[in-house]
Structures are given as C-alpha cells and as structure tokens.
Design a protein around this nucleic acid. Structure first.
Length: 292
DNA sequence: CATATGTCCTGAGAGC
DNA sequence: TGCTCTCAGGACATAT
C-alpha cells in the first residue's frame, strides 16, 4: 500500500519526465471496471496532450505532475496503484499511459528524440486520476484537506494538531488532514520505535512522548525511503523501475505477529484491530496506557 | 467539530 | 480439483 516512502520512491523514479512534453495519453481498452477519473477520460486524456511537465511532486500519498498550464495531474495510488517507467509491455489493469517526448535531450548533441512511457496501473481499481486546475489544486491539496507532510512537521505542530483528541494515537496518525503521508504500515512502525502503545488516547500523551514520536516517524520514513519502500507479501507495490522495495525486511512489528521483538528481545509481537485496520505492537516495549 | 461506520474493488489464500 | 468465502485498507460519503 503506497504510503509516503513508496510515493516518494515513485516521484524519484518518474523525475526523468520533467521537461518532457506529453504526446499521447490514453487508457488501453480492457474489461475491468474503470477507476475514478476526473474529468472523465474523454476529456482528461486529450487535455494532457501537448502539455509539458514542469515538475514531479509528492503531496502526502499523492503523486503530482505539474504541467505548463498551471494544472496538475494528480495520481492517487491508494491501495494497489503503482507507476512504471518504460515497461516492456502494458500489463493488465493499466489505467493510464503517458507517452512523453523529451524536448531537450541531455548529453545528446545530435538531439535525437528521447521518449519515455509512464503508466499507472491499479489492480483493485480503488485509485484515482485527477486533472486539477490551479484553483482546485489550492483548495483540494490545501491545508484544509491535507495536513503538513510527515517529513516536515515539527513535534510541536504534531502535538498541537492531535493532543485534544480522545481517539487512539494509531487512528489519529492515519488522518491525512492532521498529518500527511502516514499509513497503516508506518504508523505501527513509528509507534513501536517511540515505545508508545497504539491505543493510547492522544490527550494522554506527554510532551516528551510527542517529541519522541515525531523523531520516530521521521526516522522510520527516511529509512523506508532509503530502502525504496515496503513490498509486502501481496506484491502490490513495486518501484517505477519494477524492483521490489526492501524495507519490509526492516519492519520491526508490521506483519510480524508471533515473532520476538528485535528491540527488547523479550516481547512477542501482537496484532490487534484498530479502526478496522491491522495494528502491530510489542506488549513489552509498548506497555498499555493506564486504565485499559 | 470529532468520531464511527459503510463502500468501493480484485486476487490470494483458506477451507471444504 | 474447484468452488465459495474472507480478507487486505486509503479515501471518501454518510451518520451519529
């Protein structure tokens, strides 16, 4: 499931498209249910042709291609969406194909045209592709809907945004309006590193622990980016160059139910359900909050 | 406003 | 072997 590190890996992989011009955009014919396109495909795809790509950015768990007309092509991978650059052939469940011609090929004095193909593929089809104008970008990706990026947020801001809540800290970390980029994997991982029990109510967390949690989030996310994200047993996530991520091997608790904790070497990792999502923790490192 | 629940979707795996 | 069932969870809509 692409979270911040996986989408950041996508962003870095797709960076070679910057400066190129989109010469073709389409979705190959298929029998599967269409994903959510906005505007609908018959408007969206033609609107992309002829546009050049100014920048490739990440907004929380979304990938943004900034275009030369102040629009942005926003790709939301959600559960099983992934991008590939120059795939050998079009795989099943391909939802978008962009052919991009590089206008100024680097290190190529003869100027032979260089082309790239970027595809967005989404097996379960829960993802979305949006073409937003400048105004929609400001509102839909603005602070009303997307909180500060998890890599940029200070511990004080994290605290101030969550400390009034009574819900479990694990649930709060998944709220993209409070803090952007954290998903189910990295919420469990960061809480374990910070030694905070996932059910701890936000309003019971001390200043010292908010700071520890922010540092843990930062560390875990940076570690995961360095390993190009986590490819789980379902294999849903893969890097743009079709390599598996390697951070799943470094997971401290996620999908490690029954294993011995590598941090304290005593606890046995447990799995519970919080907010309808699997949550993993070590009962020794992360003692239950008082009164539960 | 905060929080809880239902919905979408497909393929993998379990169980019979 | 082949069928049916359950499960995975990010974002959003709707309800409380």
């Amino acid at each position: 499931m692409p979270e911040l590190p996986e989408v950041e890996t996508m962003r870095r992989g797709v960076r070679p498209l910057v400066g190129g011009t989109i010469i073709e955009a389409f979705c190959p014919p298929s029998h599967h249910h269409p994903i959510k396109y906005r505007p609908p495909p018959e408007t969206l795809f033609p609107a992309l042709v002829g546009r050049s790509i100014r920048a490739v950015e990440r907004c929380g768990k979304r990938l943004l291609l900034r275009l030369d007309n102040d629009h942005a092509l926003v790709i939301e991978p959600r559960m099983t969406g992934r991008v590939s650059l120059n795939p050998p052939q079009l795989p099943s469940h391909t939802r978008l194909v962009l052919r991009v011609r590089m206008t100024q090929p680097r290190g190529n004095r003869k100027g032979a045209p260089v082309e790239h193909t970027m595809i967005f593929r989404d097996v379960r089809g829960l993802g979305a592709v949006h073409l937003l104008d400048a105004n929609s970008c400001r509102t839909e990706l603005g602070p009303q809907n997307i909180g500060p990026d998890a890599l940029d947020i200070s511990w004080q801001e994290l605290r101030d945004r969550l400390r009034h809540r009574k819900c479990a800290i694990k649930v709060a970390l998944l709220d993209q309006r409070a803090i952007a980029g954290v998903g189910n994997i990295y919420a469990s991982e960061a809480l374990h590193l910070a030694r905070i029990h996932p059910t701890t109510p936000c309003h019971l967390i001390s200043n010292r622990r908010w700071r520890t949690l922010q540092q843990a989030l930062h560390l875990v996310l940076e570690e995961a980016i360095a390993k190009q994200g986590s490819t789980l047993s379902d294999g849903a996530y893969i890097t743009p160059s079709d390599e598996a991520g390697r951070y799943q091997d470094e997971h401290r608790v996620y999908q490690r139910t029954g294993e011995r904790c590598i941090q304290c070497r005593r606890g046995i990792i447990r799995r519970i359900i919080l907010g309808q999502r699997s949550t993993f923790y070590c009962p020794v490192c992360q003692p239950a909050p008082r009164g539960s």
